[in-house]
C-alpha cells in the first residue's frame, strides 16, 4: 500500500512537470490556433542554456535558470514572428507541419553544438525527506511548488490584467476580439513570450530532475501531446487536471506493469478519454 502511495506521489510530481510543459503549448494552440510541435524543442533549448551556463561557464544555478527562461521566451517570440506569422493565412494544418520543420532545425542545431551523450547540472545531489513512509526529494518539491505558483499566477494574470483578458478574448473569438479594439499583433507577441517562457521554465525543471541528452525534447512532446489532447486543447484548468491525471496514471501503472510501458499508458488514457468524450475534458462543442 505504501508503495502504491509512493507511486501516486511521484505521479503528482510528474504531473506537475507535465502541467508546466503543456500550459505553453495549449496557450499557443488557443491564441495562434495551431499545434506547435517545436514547443518541446524549446524545453530542450532552455535546459541546455541552463546546463551551458551552470556546468560549463560555472554560474550558480538560479541566474543560469533565469537567463535560460528569458532567452527561451525571446527565441520563441522571434520564431513566432519570423516563421509562423507570415504563414498564418495558410491555415492550422500547414502551420502544424511547419512546426515539424522548426523542430528539425532546432534539434539539428542542438546536436551540432552540444553533441550526443548524457549531461548533468553542477548542483548538489537531491536530499530525500520522509513522512508517513513516503519519500520526496527537495528537487521534486521545487517542481510541485513551481507548478503551483505558475498555475496561480497565470490564472491571476489571465483574469485580472489587460493583456491576460486580451489573450482570453483572442482565444475565444479572434474576429470579435479584433473588432472590439484589441491589438491583435501585440496580444500575439505577448502570447509567444509567455508560452515560450513557460517552455523555458519547464526546460529548467527538466534539467533539474532528469538527465540531459539532446533527444530529451522529443520524448517530452509525446507526453505533452497526451496531456493536451486529454485537456481538449482547452483552458488552463483542464490542462492542470489532465496533467495530473496523465502523470499519476503513468507512474501508478508501474505498480502493475513494466516501466517501459509508461508512455503507452499516457496514450491509453487519452484514447479512452477520446472514445468517451471526443472533444476532450473541457468539452467544447466544436473542435
Amino acid at each position: 500500500m505504501t508503495l502504491l502511495a509512493q507511486y501516486a506521489l511521484t505521479g503528482v510530481v510528474t504531473g506537475c512537470f507535465l502541467i508546466l510543459a503543456t500550459i505553453g503549448f495549449s496557450l499557443t494552440r488557443q491564441v495562434e490556433g495551431f499545434l506547435n510541435i517545436a514547443h518541446a524543442e524549446m524545453l530542450g533549448v532552455s535546459a541546455f542554456i541552463t546546463w551551458g551556463l551552470n556546468a560549463v561557464a560555472g554560474w550558480p544555478f538560479i541566474p543560469s535558470a533565469a537567463v535560460a527562461v528569458v532567452a527561451t521566451a525571446f527565441l520563441g517570440l522571434a520564431i513566432g514572428r519570423v516563421v509562423y506569422d507570415p504563414m498564418r493565412r495558410h491555415g492550422p494544418a500547414v502551420l502544424l507541419i511547419t512546426s515539424v520543420g522548426v523542430a528539425y532545425v532546432m534539434a539539428g542545431m542542438m546536436h551540432a553544438i552540444i553533441g550526443t551523450g548524457i549531461r548533468s547540472l553542477n548542483i548538489p545531489l537531491a536530499t530525500s525527506y520522509r513522512a508517513f513512509g513516503l519519500r520526496l526529494t527537495d528537487y521534486q518539491m521545487i517542481v510541485v511548488a513551481l507548478a503551483a505558483i505558475t498555475g496561480v499566477s497565470l490564472a491571476l494574470f489571465m483574469n485580472r490584467t489587460r493583456t491576460g483578458l486580451a489573450i482570453r478574448a483572442m482565444s475565444a473569438n479572434p474576429e470579435l476580439a479584433a473588432s472590439r479594439g484589441i491589438d491583435v499583433r501585440q496580444t500575439s507577441r505577448a502570447t509567444w513570450l509567455i508560452a515560450s517562457g513557460l517552455a523555458g521554465l519547464a526546460g529548467v525543471v527538466l534539467a533539474l530532475i532528469a538527465t540531459l541528452s539532446t533527444d530529451i525534447a522529443f520524448n517530452q512532446i509525446l507526453q505533452i501531446l497526451a496531456v493536451a489532447i486529454l485537456a481538449g486543447l482547452g483552458s488552463l484548468y483542464s490542462v492542470i487536471a489532465a496533467g495530473l491525471i496523465v502523470g499519476i496514471a503513468m507512474d501508478l501503472s508501474v505498480y502493475w506493469i513494466p516501466a517501459g510501458y509508461r508512455p503507452l499508458i499516457a496514450f491509453m488514457v487519452v484514447i479512452l478519454a477520446l472514445l468517451v468524450r471526443p472533444q476532450g475534458l473541457s468539452g467544447k462543442a466544436r473542435s
Binding site: P86, I97, G101, Y104, G108, M109
Partner: peptide, 20 residues
C-alpha cells in the same frame, strides 16, 4: 555527427521555406 545535424537543419529550413 555534425554532418547529420546539418542534414536535419537543411531539411528543416527547406521544409519551412517551401511551406512559406
Amino acid at each position: 555527427e555534425i554532418a547529420a545535424a546539418g542534414e536535419d537543419i537543411v531539411t528543416g529550413v527547406l521544409f519551412i521555406l517551401i511551406l512559406r
